[in-house]
Design a protein around this nucleic acid. Structure first.
Lengths: 253, 253
DNA sequence: CGTTACATTGATCTCTCTCAAAATTCGTGG
DNA sequence: CCACGAATTTTGAGAGAGATCAATGTAACG
């Protein structure tokens, strides 16, 4: 299933694995936290039931590979809980994060004959997986689904362009500030206002890749933001926003 | 129609305007250079004919605004000739290019109720414009079109991610090299191999915005590439690739 | 309790930005 | 067709931000 290099998890997942990371399980839409937002919401209950029988639900540990670049059996998945990253690997082995996926987002590339991107769990997370071919076939019969898929990919495109915005900030402070705000938005249950306290589910290395700066600069910048009283930190990943306006200013610079 | 600031063209287009930049004209698919590649190729001749009657064809001068951010009557357009850029404008007036569009590509945002991005002609170019609502309605009736639209947006997404790749290179040389290669690819009529000599239809300023570096650095980098015998220049926009391997090396760094 | 991975901090160097001026290109008008 | 003027591009010198190299600190796991 996974590509050769993707099996090893360097982040100490083995314990959690043994603790009972669940394998493939049936899909129960009634309990789905994103039933109203995800792509499947475009389907009638009957159609959704049919799709639910074809696909399955899985839980992933942090660091686990969800889709490996090179996989030929393309899946179309919806993230129901947690966060994931999509990344490409250069010939020289450098990883490059090209997208972050939050709950209700789609994982995988619906159209590529083989996946060109790795999809990796950033936190413990859950997803519903479907064979891409089935989804494509169903969308031919259900215009509402086709339209919803189109809207979802368009949304991903907008997000991708927002990411471009993020990393084309000139200064490191601006990039880090924008990243913090992006996660504040994603971490909030309500779309209208952001979370004030949340976890950045990225290592410093991942943040550095994403922002196009070095690990050291990320670290120094976070320290500077904390010293300036703009954020507070709890452990290495916990963030509390103390001065939202200052963060906005930095992010738009 | 256009936003306040978008009307002025600082690039001396007035003459070409007067020379007879054509206004809206009927669509003639027989003469279309991208009839086999564009989204409309998914339609039957009859459906395409119907769409052609609804939409119209226009030519744009370099620097002209095709879609202005804020436009509420959303159009769905196909670029048939030339090159265009999509960009957002920050609150502080900084332009940020988030996508380049080449022939057969789609312009505009099919789903946004109002456009969030400016679309501007980079070269003299031509496009077929359709009301987005009509295209969306037709795609509900024609699964083939819906699928083709989905594929197109997915392709745009891939391109957007490629752009992220481009601007997350650490060094300016790598970014410029990658940009040159991207245009070499786009300028070539054959998909299998790139053009060796072509025009970069961007000003230094546009390249700088795109790459997240300054005009001066772009200029210096091009000079350095020329001094190193990797490229040759003809005028300020003509590029000839002399050492493809060296360029590849720089671009992947 | 030691090992490993991750994060922070420090010192130095390189690259890019900034400010400034010269050179070139291109459109315009004579 | 040539000459002028505006915009763009190139080049230079100096300053600043981030990269790099290196070491210390901290947390998680076996």
């Amino acid at each position: 299933m996974a590509a050769a290099t993707a099996g090893a998890c360097s982040k100490g997942c083995s314990k959690r694995w043994r603790e009972g990371m669940s394998g493939p399980a049936p899909i129960v839409c009634d309990a789905c936290p994103v039933a109203d937002r995800a792509v499947c919401s475009a389907l009638s209950p009957e159609d959704r039931g049919e799709l639910a029988r074809i696909g399955h639900h899985r839980r992933y540990a942090r660091g686990e590979t969800i889709v490996a670049a090179g996989d030929s059996a393309t899946v179309c998945a919806t993230l129901t809980r947690g966060a994931a990253k999509m990344s490409s690997i250069d010939r020289d082995g450098t990883e490059r994060i090209v997208a972050l996926v939050h709950p209700a987002g789609m994982l995988g590339q619906l159209f590529a004959p083989t996946a060109t991107l790795h999809v990796t769990a950033l936190t413990e997370c859950e997803a519903c997986l479907f064979p891409a071919a089935h989804v494509a076939a169903l969308s031919d019969k259900r215009p509402a689904l086709a339209r919803r898929l189109l809207a979802e990919v368009s949304r991903e495109l907008d997000e991708s362009r927002a990411l471009i915005d993020l990393i084309s900030k000139r200064q490191a402070k601006g990039r880090v500030a924008a990243l913090i705000l992006a996660f504040a938005r994603a971490a909030s249950p309500a779309p209208c206002h952001d979370a004030e306290t949340f976890d950045l589910p990225l290592t410093r290395g991942e943040m550095a890749q994403l922002l196009g700066i070095t690990i050291e600069t990320v670290s120094r910048t976070l320290t500077a933001l904390e010293d300036a009283g703009i954020i507070a930190r709890q452990g290495s990943h916990g963030i509390a926003i103390l001065d939202r306006d200052a963060l906005d200013d930095l992010a738009s610079a």
